[in-house]
Design a binder for these strands. Structure first.
Length: 491
RNA sequence: GGCCCCAUCGUAUAGCGGCCUAGUACGCUGCCCUCUCACGGCGGUAACACCGGUUCGAAUCCGGUUGGGGUCACCA
């Protein structure tokens, strides 16, 4: 069967993101949103955002709000739909019932939909009785029910679901990422589009809204690949009754996988968008990494800005095979983005991650001054507090980690350091370093790592810290001396 | 089981018939830098699932096999 697929290109391209608000935003879902968005922006087309909340049992307002929060955090915006409105409002399916009811009547009248009284159990039993695989699905046997037969079912107290009469021919489409795909006639059967209670199902409302909203390119997860022929069948019906004139192009994006060979599960923390935000991913870092799941900018570059991604993105270059989410790689990419930020910008981004450490203007200034010390030491913004807390902690409250505590031999080091630092006029890191090197490395003939290790413990309480002399400078003369004295007294 | 999709280093990918004794990045690892940790620099490790075919020539095209995944809901 030949079909009038969309030929839209450039700014005529219309894509959509249409999540069902169940649970926290999943990175696979977000990757789908990202690719749709990038495709629209690259082509100067239109991004539509609608919500498929037709499953009252599973959908929640909280989840809906989280979706908005997540998209806004990432900077994925839209031109029509939720909040911004548009010619096909409303954009929440729960508010579009009358539109569906109207179309259901039209499709019924035109003979595309027919009443089906068989329950799932009966269909399975029927398959078994006919020697078919129980899992083989519906066999279209109620297509030509007589009025008398229908009345008989009604007399039993049954209400019919409505099924779409699908064509008895092969159905083909040219997938944007996979190429030509053909489903043989008979491999997809008449499917239910309306429940007996009159409520339309996803199988109906999704293509109907795409048609009504003029969607030209449907980019979605590959789990929907098998339902595409059925949707195309529905499109043919919609075209015949004049609802639309074309069928969108489809592009089925590869799965985002977790460990093993299965989709990243909703139970897996890695799947949760907010898990990554909470740990300190930058929006641009996460977008960069997510882009790499099934797509690449070029052969030898995998760190790039959002603008660069948009400028280069084309869905036809998306790789069809499933991609594993690799937290290590994601963090590495994020670290690169952290290093690409200006220090003032990084300081601003860091602040929300500092917990109650940064509370005053003075704290903010200290954070700004300390940011350069940690910019090359983080992959996640959430690592900052552990690295910097000693700068914001009163001298009395510095805890000495067990693995950082030096032996009694450090007493001489601390004494010598105090002696040379106390009278130091020019409290700058290079002067501090010079004084300490003269006193400890040359004077006491110590190895730098031994001498400075003890001082590091004194001021930070840790074996690992930002650069020592810069840290001392930020801490100030008095605090530094106080901390040296405190450690000495504990040895 | 029927139908559909997928198949390059551990991972993500480059490759769209000769530029490939297969490139890059993460990871792992050796060395250098170095006050710790990082950052950075220079190396190393490691892949075309298999079998046929087409072709002068195949990771690239075709067929099959194997393996993995999805789908066959009155969920979305």
């Amino acid at each position: 069967m030949t079909a009038p697929f969309s030929t839209a290109s450039g700014s005529d391209i219309r894509v959509r993101f249409c999540p069902s608000p169940t649970g926290t935003p999943h990175v696979g879902l977000i990757r789908t949103a990202l690719f749709n968005w990038a495709y629209a922006r690259h082509n100067g087309g239109t991004m539509v955002f609608r919500v498929e909340d037709t499953d009252a049992a599973r959908d929640s307002e909280e989840s809906f709000l989280q979706l908005l929060d997540g998209l806004r955090w990432l900077g994925i915006n839209w031109d029509e739909g939720i909040d911004v409105g548009g010619p096909q409002a409303p954009y929440r399916q729960s508010q579009r019932t009358s539109i569906y009811v109207d179309l259901i009547e039209k499709l019924k009248a035109s003979g595309h939909l027919y009443e089906s009284f068989a329950t799932p159990d009966e269909i399975e039993a029927r398959n078994v009785a006919n020697g078919r695989d129980p899992k083989q699905g519906y066999d279209n046997f109620e297509r030509e029910l007589t009025d008398a037969e229908r009345d008989a079912f009604r007399a039993e107290g049954r209400s019919p679901a409505l099924r779409l009469r699908v064509p008895d021919t092969d159905l083909s489409f040219d997938d944007l990422v996979r190429g030509e795909i053909t489903f043989p006639a008979g491999s997809f059967t008449d499917f239910v589009v309306v429940r007996p209670n009159g409520a339309p199902l996803y199988t109906f409302v999704n293509p109907v809204d795409d048609a009504l909203m003029g969607i030209t390119h449907v980019l979605r997860g590959e789990d929907l690949l098998s339902s595409t022929p059925r949707q195309i069948a529905l499109y043919h019906a919609l075209i015949e009754i004049g609802v639309t004139t074309f069928i969108p192009r489809f592009g089925h994006l590869p799965y985002v996988m977790g460990d093993g060979n299965k989709k990243l599960s909703k139970r897996d923390p890695e799947s949760n968008l907010f898990h990554h935000r909470d740990r300190g991913f930058l929006p641009e870092g996460l977008i960069n990494y997510l882009s790499l799941l099934g797509w690449s900018l070029s052969a030898d570059r995998d760190v790039f800005s959002i603008d660069e991604m948009v400028a280069a993105f084309d869905v036809v270059n998306v790789n069809p095979n499933p991609a594993r989410f690799d937290p290590k790689k994601a963090e590495s990419i994020n670290g690169d983005h952290i290093r690409m930020l200006s220090t003032t910008e990084l300081a601003n981004r860091l602040e929300p991650y500092m917990g109650n450490l940064v509370q005053s203007e003075i704290d903010r200034d200290l954070l700004a001054a300390a940011t350069p010390l940690v910019q090359e030491r983080m992959q996640l913004l959430g690592e900052a507090p552990a690295l910097l807390s000693f700068l914001f902690t009163p001298d009395d409250d510095i805890e000495i980690d067990a693995d950082a505590r030096p032996g009694p031999e450090a007493i001489d080091i601390l004494d010598a350091a105090s002696a040379v630092l106390d009278p130091l006029e020019d409290w700058k890191h290079d002067a501090i370093e010079e004084a300490l090197r003269v006193a400890l490395i040359e004077g006491l003939e110590l190895k730098p790592r031994v001498a400075f290790g003890a001082l590091r413990t004194a001021i930070s309480g840790k074996r690992i810290s930002p650069p020592l002399f810069e840290s001392m400078e930020l801490l100030g003369h008095d605090s530094t001396l106080e901390r040296l004295a405190r450690l000495r007294s504990q040895l």
